[in-house]
Each structure stands twice: as C-alpha cells, then as structure tokens.
Amino acid sequence: MNTVAKRQVMSLTVNGDTYEVLVSPRQTLLDVIRGPIGLRGTKEGCATGTCGVCTINNEQGEALLSCLTPALEWDGKSVTTVEGLEADGELAPIQQAFVEFGAVQCGFCTPGVIMSAQGLLNSFHKPSEDDINDGMAGVLCRCTGHIKVKDAIRDVVKKRA
C-alpha cells in the first residue's frame, strides 16, 4: 500500500486563539505551532521526548511533549505555550521568578523549562521537594544545573497563599 500523507484542516486553540490550519499527518503539534501558527517560543530539542525543551501545557495545564504529539491528535483541542503565560504585559509569577533568580543562561531550553514548571504549579498548589524533582526531571537545562530553576519554583510556591 502506497500511503499518501493526506492533508486535513484542523482546528487548534493556542493561548486562547483558535486557528484553522491545513496539516499533514507527518507534522507534530510542535511543527504546527512553530510553522503555520508562527509561535516560535516553543523549541525543538531532541525530538525524542528526552530533553523536554518542546514542553507546552495541555488542556488540564499539564506538561505535554509537543514533539511526540501528532498534530491531528489535537484537532479541536487547546494548548498553552510560553507566549500564553503573560497577561496584559505582566509576566506570570513563574516567569518573574525566573528573571529574579537568574534561572536562565543561554535561554534555549527556557520555554520548555518554564512550561514544565508551570505544569507542576498547575497540578500542585504547594508541591513538595519530591513533586518538584518529579515534575522537572523530564526537562534538561545544560547551563543552569537546575539549582536556580528550583529556587525560582520554590519562590513561587512560597508566595502562594
């Protein structure tokens, strides 16, 4: 059987905006977000689910690897990317904490690290140390050593009522 990757129109809501895009089965959610939708915050790292750099949040606000998700699987659904965290020009608490704690060096992994942290903060109001380690083990920053990243997350947790 000779397979032709037939394109289909799908609907995807990213950060509250709904897009109708023509998508091939060969494309992942990452390809569609960065390509036709044009939001380049989300990065491709290993493309094998190991590095977590492509992390976005699913409808429940959990960490989702966009590089391993077929785009068509997400037809009619919504996601949040790093561009969707700020509101009215104000950084989200986790973004502000990354700035204050210097939890960034080269910055390439930062969108994935922040969306992993946001996924953790969406799942737990007051995550424990174990929860933080568990939530962040699937995303790799080769510059910061994760120390300042965890400091930033702990700071957001501390400031929560």
């Binding site: 059987m1 397979t3 032709v4 990757a5 060969r26 699987e73």
Partner: peptide
C-alpha cells in the same frame, strides 16, 4: 517530519477494531 502515513481516529472501540480488521497494509 514523521514518515508519510494516514492518521485515523475512531470514535468508538467497535469502529477502531473494525478498522484494525479491514486495514490494507
């Protein structure tokens, strides 16, 4: 990109099993 393929998403188990049974290729 992923290798070329057709992506199908059945709504029910019965529909999925019927697709598995009748698949060419």
């Amino acid at each position: 990109h992923l290798p070329a393929h057709e992506f199908v998403k059945p709504a029910t188990l019965a529909e999925g099993l019927s697709l598995l049974q009748s698949a060419a290729g």
